[in-house]
Simulated assay, not measured.
Amino acid sequence: MMIKQAEFLISAVKPSQYPDLGFNEVAFVGRSNVGKSSLINTLTNRRKLVKVSGTPGKTRLINFFLINGKYCFVDLPGYGYAKVSKVEKQKWGKMIEDYLIKRDNLKKVVLLLDIRHKPTQDDIQMYEWIKYYGYEIIIVATKKDKLSNNQIAKSDKVIRQTLKLDKDEKIIHFSSLKKQGKEELLEAIFKNLD
């Protein structure tokens, strides 16, 4: 499936602000600075659809994007950023939780992990949480271009052990810089999404 059209719809902080289009949604979640904005821009072939920042923790709202006129991509705030106050972190946590629990349109969640680092406690919690609520989960290891194939294999092992992944759970390796993993991820996103 190719993305031919992508446009920003709305930013929201609470359920009453979510768009009411009835379209199936795919949410993107991950630690601050994991490359979420760059990944969405790469998937949609739009360099500036999502603002990319050098400062982690910039996404503070839930951003909805209309894709091909019939789906929505949902960019959730990054978690685990240390330089944010405890109160702010709790607010983000509540915002993410409300969306994940109360959104009937949500069909799949793309969990982004930085391939260079062992998944954090926040990553483990998010993975378990998504599984608990029964959403289809797509695991993406970003920044693939930063490692050799040998290092990627080692990193995969660490991710699998840390998250206790089943053998049949796939990890998609992705590089926004080199546009690697794009087709595989698009295929996973749009498979049975209708």
Rank of each mutant, 00 (worst) to 15 (best):
N149A: 07
Q151G: 06
G35D: 07
A12L: 00
I62S: 08
R116F: 06
V140S: 10
L185A: 14
R103N: 03
F28D: 08
I62V: 15
E25Q: 13
F64V: 04
G69S: 12
A82V: 09
R46M: 10
N150H: 10
F28P: 05
I3S: 07
P119G: 02
E25W: 02
L113H: 08
G22E: 01
K4Y: 14
F23C: 07
V84S: 14
K107M: 11
L43H: 09
H117Q: 14
K167F: 15
Q90Y: 05
P15N: 03
I62M: 10
G181C: 05
V13H: 08
Q121D: 08
S148I: 06
I3T: 07
H173K: 13
K4R: 15
D75E: 09
L49P: 01
S32N: 13
L66G: 09
I189D: 07
S85H: 06
S32L: 11
L21M: 13
I124W: 03
S155H: 05
L49G: 00
K51G: 08
N68P: 02
E128M: 12
D122M: 12
Y133N: 09
F8T: 09
S53T: 05
L76N: 02
I130T: 08
D168T: 14
I171Q: 11
V26D: 03
L163I: 01
K146E: 13
I137V: 15
K86V: 01
A27N: 10
N63A: 03
N192W: 04
K70R: 09
K83E: 12
D168L: 12
Q125W: 15
L61F: 14
K70F: 06
Q125G: 00
K146A: 11
V140H: 11
K102H: 08
G57F: 09
G78D: 12
S11W: 02
D156T: 10
G22C: 06
E7Y: 06
N33C: 03
M1F: 13
G30K: 02
Y132K: 15
V109F: 12
V50Q: 01
K70M: 06
K118D: 00
A82S: 10
L106R: 00
Q5F: 12
G69D: 15
Y127P: 00
L185C: 13
F64H: 04
L165A: 07
L9D: 01
G57D: 11
L193M: 05
I130K: 08
I3V: 14
D104F: 07
K86E: 13
K118Y: 01
L185E: 09
Y132H: 14
K182M: 09
